[in-house]
Design a protein around this nucleic acid. Structure first.
Length: 741
DNA sequence: AAGTTTCTACTTTTT
DNA sequence: GTAGAAACTT
């Protein structure tokens, strides 16, 4: 086991100071790659080993499960199994646990379920409809973000301004929304924080209990905290305030979620006695990359100046390059990765491609697919957002808490069991009239049926039968919960609900959905040994609070594609940032607000500082966005990079194409177009297929061409395939040939 | 009740 | 261009 010497060994002076300043508030301003995780973990180890703090008195808070896991792993290496006594977790997970334990004092049911953003949106929509409002004037999305912002600032409906009619309406929707949450025994993400803060405010005994329990608190990514989180930490730290926070204003990129980098400055005001430690020495990137990063971020005004440095002078110059369009951009990325790998300069897995919006991944993926090169995609459709996963989880959620109306609405007719819109609407209205949750209404229906007592209800005999069957299914599953472990329960759900048969319809998509469910089953296996009731609670909590960036697979040697946001906290030897264009990075939505513009700049800074050795910055001459192709302007951020850091531009050899010869996409430089056996060369502007042609497709079989037209240089063919249906294909990509007449 | 067409909006998204 | 929801058919 490491002793004190080892704990401090290899740390620079600033890092050592941070580790050893044990008492009172400490603010560490840590630039990218400055070893902040190291400081955090070594400080914990130091507290335990050298300062004799019992591990269970230490709480370390992170934003992501991944960061929490990483911290645990490192602390296992430093402390051995003692690390288990530490409280390490995300804000949300820690709050969820406190609320479960203190449910009574917090005035909530210990059986509460956690609503994710999809559930939240359904609930807001319901609230808007309950109030007979027009959801075109009051868009659920924007209302939800207002509600969320309010909660992040610890504002209840009553605290909200109601100066205008619109504000008044939003306030009422918020009120109704909270009412619905309570009715469903549910908390949303924001509630986890807000209810905990309220609990600590209201209940001195509970607050004192947790203050005593955790005299040492450490918080990572301080610049990403919102009001509620700041307040929570302040309440937990109490007057003693052995509070250690690490952050970097320059890496604050979550303002849109309520994060407020000014919490860094606020900390200095609230704790004027705080020790402030600056970590500027960078252990990640070459000086070339750091100089570029410094130049980009220096233009932000709302920051404390900080200058990253490294003893590693020099490094390969930054490559800035223009592609003709998004398609060529993808090809250039793939070609360059291939070149680096072939020349032994990097492994494929060392490379990352970053972009501002998820929509940009498409053409990049296409390029990888055409080159036959594997890649890893982060984000996009997240595992727990997949329909089949949410459906199955809804069943489990209902078993746990049958009053969860959103879950019930989700699966009452999935798989189809003859309970249509009309019946569902009638059921909801009926339950509302009776003033009971939907599940209770179903039970009343079932009881009346059994006892033969008359009961006023709006259903026809068929609808009633369907509802009774569904109620019986639910009750069977709820009863089964006691005898079965989580795995058996899940299997029973899949069988008895008919979901398994419903999903496995023989189609390849069905199989892949089923595989996702099997993956969920694997996740459930970890909980199978726990006692049935707590297993379900724990499992649902875990899946509600886990995102799947957490499951980024690090073993496969393939490039990673991800948004700039998802890249935070990661590092790669080779980084490509694509789409460095005005209106994309910086994004069009941020153009007229200087605050948001600064955030765009920070986002760019975060991307650049992910690179260890090589950095490529790409933009296009023209790009198709929302189906509209337009000429682009290179990003203003590119102008901020001193030219001596940039490799001399290699001009495209092909003649500069002009925006108006749109039928001639710039992808004819043979070298950059990887050979693909199924690719048909389309260098003519004339279509290869015409209406009535008979074709043979490798997957869909024989078909007849219905229509063919040129769309931006691609031939788009609509074909009716026998027994398959009508498909729209791109002639140059589809494995399809014309049959002789 | 289920399938089909039309409308609409569209960053980022740690939990 | 496209996904998701609502409106409209069958």
């Amino acid at each position: 086991m490491p002793n004190t010497q080892d704990i401090l060994a290899g740390l620079n002076a600033a890092q050592q100071e941070a580790v050893q300043t044990v008492e009172g508030p400490v603010l560490v301003l840590a630039g990218p790659g400055s070893g902040k995780t190291r400081v955090l973990t070594h400080r914990v180890a130091y507290l335990v080993r050298e300062y004799g703090v019992p591990p269970w008195q230490i709480m370390a808070v992170t934003f992501t499960n991944k960061a929490a896991r990483e911290m645990k792993e490192r602390l296992y290496r430093l402390l051995g199994t003692e690390y288990r006594k530490l409280t390490i977790g995300t804000f949300h997970a820690i709050c969820a646990r406190i609320l479960r334990r203190e449910a009574e004092a917090a005035h909530i049911s210990p059986q509460y379920v956690i609503y994710d953003s999809g559930d939240q949106q359904s609930l807001v929509r319901r609230a808007i409809r309950d109030l007979d409002l027009d959801d075109k004037r009051y868009r659920p999305r924007s209302i939800l973000s207002r509600i969320s912002r309010a909660k992040n600032e610890l504002l209840t409906p009553a605290d909200l301004p109601a100066g205008t009619y619109r504000e008044e309406v939003i306030r009422r929707i918020y009120e109704r929304y909270q009412h619905l949450l309570a009715e469903n025994n549910a908390l949303d993400f924001d509630d986890l924080l807000m209810k905990t803060v309220q609990l600590f405010h209201r209940n001195d005994a509970v607050r004192a209990k947790y203050q005593r329990r955790y005299p040492f608190i450490l918080v990572d990514e301080w610049q990403d905290t919102n009001m509620a989180q700041y307040e929570l930490v302040k309440l937990l730290a109490g007057a003693q305030a052995n509070l250690f926070v690490v952050g970097d204003e320059d890496q604050s990129i979550y303002a849109f979620r309520g994060a407020d980098y000014r919490n860094v400055a606020r900390f200095r005001q609230d704790y004027p006695q705080a020790r402030v430690i600056l970590l500027e020495r960078n252990y990640r990137s070459t000086q070339v990359i750091l100089d570029a990063a410094n130049a980009i971020i220096a233009r932000n005004t709302h920051r404390h100046p900080k200058r990253l440095f490294t003893p590693q002078e020099g490094g390969p110059p930054i490559v800035i390059r223009e592609a003709y369009d998004e398609r060529e951009e993808g090809e250039l990325v793939v070609a360059e990765i291939r070149r680096l790998v072939e020349q032994g300069k990097a492994r494929a897995g060392d490379c990352a491609v970053m972009y501002r919006t998820n929509a940009q991944s498409r053409p990049i993926e296409d390029a990888f697919v055409q080159a036959g090169m594997p890649y890893k995609l982060v984000g996009a459709t997240r595992f727990y957002e997949r329909k089949e996963i949410k459906d199955v989880l809804a069943y489990l959620r209902l078993i746990h808490n049958p009053y969860d109306g959103i879950g019930l609405a989700r699966i009452i007719n999935v798989p189809p069991r003859a309970i249509g819109k009309k019946t569902v609407g009638g059921l909801n209205r009926w339950a509302a009239e009776l003033g009971v949750p939907v599940y209770a209404a179903l039970q009343m229906l079932a009881e009346a049926e059994q006892s033969g007592e008359p009961l006023q209800h709006p259903f026809g005999p068929r609808a009633k039968r369907s509802l009774l069957n569904f109620a019986a299914l639910l009750d069977e599953l709820i009863r089964a919960q006691q005898q079965l472990n989580l795995l058996e329960l899940l299997d029973l759900v899949l069988e008895r609900s008919g979901y398994k048969a419903y999903i496995r319809d023989g189609s390849p998509e069905g199989e892949s959905r089923w595989e996702n469910i099997l993956e969920l089953r694997t996740a459930a296996r970890d909980f199978a040994d726990l006692p049935p009731e707590s297993a379900l609670t724990a499992f649902l909590e875990e899946v509600a609070l886990v995102s799947d960036v957490d499951n980024l697979d690090e073993t496969t040697d393939a490039p990673t594609l991800l948004t700039l946001h998802a890249a935070k906290g990661l590092e790669f030897p080779v980084v490509f940032i694509v789409g460095l264009e005005e209106e994309l990075l910086p994004h069009a939505r941020s153009m007229d607000d200087p605050e948001q513009m600064e955030e765009e700049r920070r986002l760019c800074y975060v991307g650049v500082t992910r690179a260890k050795e090589r950095l490529y910055l790409f933009y296009t001459f023209r790009r198709t966005l929302y189906g509209e192709s337009a000429v682009r302007i290179p990003s203003r951020f590119l102008e901020d990079i001193p030219s001596h850091l940039v490799q001399d531009r290699v001009e495209n050899k092909a003649p500069r194409r002009t925006p108006w010869d749109s039928g001639f996409p710039g992808r004819h430089r043979a070298a950059s177009v990887p050979f693909s056996p199924q690719r048909r060369t389309t260098n003519s502007l004339s279509p290869q297929f015409q209406t009535g042609d008979q074709v043979q497709h490798d997957v869909f079989g024989r078909g007849t061409v219905i229509e063919s037209r040129m769309v931006g240089g691609d031939e788009q063919v609509t074909v009716a395939f026998a027994g398959v249906g009508v498909k729209r294909l791109v002639a140059s990509l589809a494995p399809m040939r014309r049959l002789p007449d």
